[in-house]
Amino acid sequence: MHAYANPTRFLAIARPLTPWLLGLGLALLLVGAWAGLMLVPGDYKQGETARILYVHVPSAWLGMGGWTALAVAGLVQLVWRHPLAGIAARAIAVPGMLFTALCLATGSIWGKPTWGTWWEWDGRMTSMLVLLFLYAGFVALTMGDANENGGQRQGGMLSRGAAVYALVGAVNIPIINRSVVWWNSLHQGPSITLGGSSIDAALLWPLGLTLLGFSLLFGGIVLMRMRRIIADNRVAARLRRLADDDEGN
């Protein structure tokens, strides 16, 4: 694993991978969205309204998956001191927050015509809102420590506090997942479980496409952001060297 601690080796893989992830993700997303909006029939009960699930479900998945990755990155930094972990966590935070916000927004738009309300304080919605606030807190924490010493913390690593925060915040992920099982809620129970799917196959397949498409896009965006952080670090290091040289002369 530490072979990729060398940014040059990481970049040799990340650079060619980025356009593939973005291109393939966008293509799958467009086909999935077209199929979900135009091709498959509406739901027997909700009609056309249910089509928003092709955006809502991938958003929820990436919002929660993003924090899971953030927590893993926090653990890897705390235990193994891997230099890419902090960079990855910084790169994931903003896209993860964006998809969490997208999940809440599409859920709200979906809730009005079906349930009859934009927002209710039920377990699922409240725990998802907490996730959005957790992301905001993480972004604020890591923005603060990036300003230390006038630049990124050494090599883009997280402060210990931010890494611990990422780990502790992961407690919310199983709570979101189980919220509709543990508590009476307005949100319905899980449709897709290990036992199978209660979304009929005729409506399910575009969801697979948008889920994979959004995920690949997310991966591509994270790689782009990681490359940017590495580039920033290199510029900062070079400027420091130049400044030191000047003082030496």
Partner: peptide
Amino acid sequence: ILAKHDERYMPPQMG
């Protein structure tokens, strides 16, 4: 009054 729906989604003819 709010309406609750279940976790099943299917085409109209199957409903």
